[in-house]
Write a protein that binds this DNA or RNA. Structure first.
Lengths: 186, 186
DNA sequence: GGAAGCATGTAAAGTGTTACATGATTTT
DNA sequence: AAAATCATGTAACACTTTACATGCTTCC
């Protein structure tokens, strides 16, 4: 792989018609954030590198004192994006979930505190699920069109995941509650 | 938060009776890896830092030329671990999934290549699911005991997640196939 | 007139991975 | 005798985040 995934994220966004660094960051926050985030301090240097290496071309579109620099894919950039998408290479996968790490070590806590921990995990999953249904999915639906179907599909996967996760924790809560009641009867 | 999550991972492993850096790395690879990984080059310096700050104590248990350094939680370390577990602070959550990123940009590919991409995603989820059911879950079940129940619960969540994910991609494959057939009839 | 949003970038600090380096012990 | 596993650690590199720094434009 010539480029890192964050570089392909930028190439992909440019292919989808997003033009400036600032807009890329905004688009990421409204779409790929849940499986691939990026900060401005990543986007701007990466745009410069990609331009230097010929994957994209930039042009200055400042209006007066208001700076604005737009970018477009070159043929080389388009090819690189498609090769990456087609590549059989195992895609990288990284998951860091501090909430699950706490659950893993929850034996160190008394039962009441575990209940509270699991409740917080469920509530958080529910909140993210809501933000998907209220913000991200409607936006993805409104921008979906022939030739732009997969952003919506990815958004649905995210929404379904958080709904699934919330349900999983809710069931764990039920089991813990049932156990606590049994323990009290004894 | 005084310590970073990786430090709490180490405190938690020590609390669970794991004694050396090498063993911590092995335990992580067999249990928390799927929601929190760690490398040896992280574990050894972190053990040294935690010892320096009084969260743990180390003692040399080398036998002859074979080095071995074991660690135990101090009272301070135990308190820190429990405070972290009880803390209401929003747990960090990071997810980087190159496969989903490719799916997001799949509009750049012809239909056949998209099918292949989704198939690979499903097959990968199935492979991880299998490794859970064949290795991680049985191990978690065999080491589960009163006072050590949550590692098994976390392993179940991981296994259920990959099964869910595999099913999600399988359904997407069906939908894509159905669409392709409809398109051919026209 | 002030707040929110548009727009670009840099610097420092933190975090993590891969590769390197070494050697003993146990299993096959 | 070789291979796998136990066991510790360092150095160089890669990557990311947070904070800093600046100023215009549009909306209320």
């Amino acid at each position: 792989m010539r480029l890192k995934p964050s570089a392909y994220l930028i190439l992909g966004m440019l292919r989808n018609g997003v033009e400036t660094g600032y807009e890329i960051k905004r688009a990421v926050d409204l779409s790929t954030r849940f499986f691939w985030a990026a900060s401005l301090a990543q986007v701007y240097p990466e745009l410069a590198r990609l331009a230097e290496q010929g994957y994209i071309t930039g042009s200055d579109e400042s209006r007066g004192a208001r700076p604005r620099r737009t970018y477009r894919l070159t043929k080389k950039g388009e090819t690189a994006l498609e090769e990456w998408l087609r590549s059989g290479r195992m895609p990288s996968f990284e998951f860091r979930d501090e909430g699950l790490l706490r659950l893993f070590f929850a034996d160190a806590l008394p039962a009441d505190d575990v209940t509270a921990l699991v409740r917080r995990l469920r509530e958080h999953a529910e909140a993210v699920d809501r933000s998907f249904r209220e913000e991200i999915l409607p936006l993805a639906e409104s921008t979906s069109a022939p030739g732009f179907r997969y952003p919506l599909i990815a958004a649905r996967l995210g929404a379904d995941y958080y709904a699934w996760r919330a349900a999983w924790f809710a069931q764990l809560e039920d089991e813990l509650r049932a156990q606590a009641e049994r323990a009290q009867q004894d």
